[in-house]
Design a protein around this nucleic acid. Structure first.
Length: 289
DNA sequence: AATCCGTGGCA
DNA sequence: TTGCCAAGGAT
C-alpha cells in the first residue's frame, strides 16, 4: 500500500495549504470547530467565521456559557445553522462530561451532538494524531478513482469503502493521521469532482481510473437539489431577519420575506421546533436564549 | 434508506 | 443561465 501512501505523503509536504486549524498552535477545540464548520461548506467561507469564533470563544466553556442564539448569530451565513446549535450543545456536553476539555477518544467524540463518524475520526486524527479511517467526500472520490477506477463513489458510503480506507491506513498513528489529511487535501486540490488536475497528481501512474482512460460516471443519475422555492430557502430568509436584528422581531417583519403564507408558517414552525427560533411573546420572535 | 437541512461560487 | 458541488449529520 505504500505505493499509494508514500507519494501522497510526499506531495502533501510541499503542497498542503497553510490553514489555521492545521497550525501547531491550533487547539483540539479549534480543530473541532473547524470540522463542524467545514461540513458541506467551502474553506474560503469558513476562514473568517472560524477566526472570529475562536477569538470570542477560545474554549468550550466560553461558548457553553452563552445563549445558543449567540452561536446561531455568530454562525452568520455559513449555512445549515442547526450546526451552530449542535456545536453549542457539544460545548455544553464537553463541559459537563469532560471537564471542559475536548475528549480524545473516538467514542466520546461520537457521542457529542453534531459529530458523526467522519467528524469523530477527523478530530481524533487531526487534533490527537490517532489512527482512524477518515472518509469524507474528498477521500471517497480519490479512492473511487485511484483504486476502483471509477469517476465517482457510490451515493452512500459502503463497507467496501471503509475496508479500502483501513487497508491503506499506515500502521504508525502519527503517520496515519498525516496520511488522512494528505489524501483529503489531494482530493480537495487535485483530484477534484470537476476538472481534476491529473497532470499534477503524485499517483497518476498508479491510478486505475487513469489506466482505464478516465471513463465518465455511468451510475444512477444524481438527484438535483433545486433550492429556489423550497422550505430551506424560506427558513434561510426568516432566520436571516432574526440574525440581523438586535432584539425580538415582530411577525410582520418576518412575513415580508416570503409571500406564500402556508409555506412561511410551516418553515417558521420548523425553525421553532428545531430550536433555532424562540417565540418570546405574542407575535414576537427572537433567536433562542 | 431516503430526505431534509443553507449558502454562494463557478464552469 | 443554472445545475453542480463544498471536510456530513440526524431522523
Amino acid at each position: 500500500m505504500r505505493k499509494f501512501t508514500d507519494p501522497i505523503l510526499a506531495w502533501y509536504e510541499t503542497h498542503a495549504r497553510d490553514l489555521p486549524w492545521r497550525s501547531p498552535d491550533a487547539t483540539p477545540w479549534g480543530v473541532l470547530v473547524s470540522e463542524i464548520m467545514l461540513q458541506q461548506t467551502p474553506v474560503v467561507r469558513v476562514l473568517p467565521v472560524w477566526h472570529a469564533w475562536l477569538e470570542r470563544w477560545p474554549a468550550p466553556a466560553d461558548l457553553a456559557a452563552e445563549p445558543s442564539g449567540e452561536a446561531v448569530r455568530a454562525w452568520g451565513r455559513l449555512g445549515y445553522p442547526r450546526r451552530a446549535l449542535r456545536l453549542h450543545a457539544a460545548a455544553q456536553a464537553i463541559v459537563e462530561r469532560h471537564g471542559g476539555e475536548v475528549p480524545d477518544s473516538h467514542a466520546d467524540l461520537l457521542d457529542l451532538p453534531g459529530i458523526g463518524s467522519y467528524t469523530a475520526a477527523a478530530v481524533a486524527s487531526f487534533a490527537f494524531r490517532q489512527r482512524h479511517a477518515v472518509l469524507d467526500t474528498n477521500v471517497r472520490r480519490v479512492l473511487a478513482r485511484m483504486i476502483d477506477g471509477v469517476e465517482f463513489p457510490p451515493k452512500s458510503q459502503t463497507r467496501a469503502e471503509v475496508a479500502t480506507a483501513e487497508t491503506l491506513l499506515p500502521v504508525d498513528p502519527p503517520t496515519a493521521a498525516r496520511w488522512s489529511v494528505a489524501i483529503m487535501e489531494l482530493g480537495a486540490l487535485v483530484c477534484t469532482a470537476r476538472s481534476p488536475r491529473c497532470v499534477d497528481c503524485p499517483v497518476l501512474d498508479r491510478c486505475e481510473w487513469q489506466a482505464r482512460g478516465r471513463p465518465a460516471y455511468d451510475g444512477p443519475p444524481r438527484r438535483g437539489q433545486t433550492y429556489a422555492g423550497t422550505d430551506r430557502q424560506c427558513r434561510g430568509r426568516l432566520l436571516a431577519v432574526l440574525r440581523d436584528a438586535h432584539g425580538p422581531v415582530a411577525k410582520p417583519a418576518l412575513d415580508v420575506v416570503w409571500s406564500d403564507a402556508v409555506q412561511r408558517e410551516r418553515a417558521l414552525d420548523g425553525l421553532i421546533a428545531d430550536g433555532l427560533v424562540d417565540p418570546v411573546a405574542d407575535g414576537l420572535y427572537a433567536l433562542p436564549s
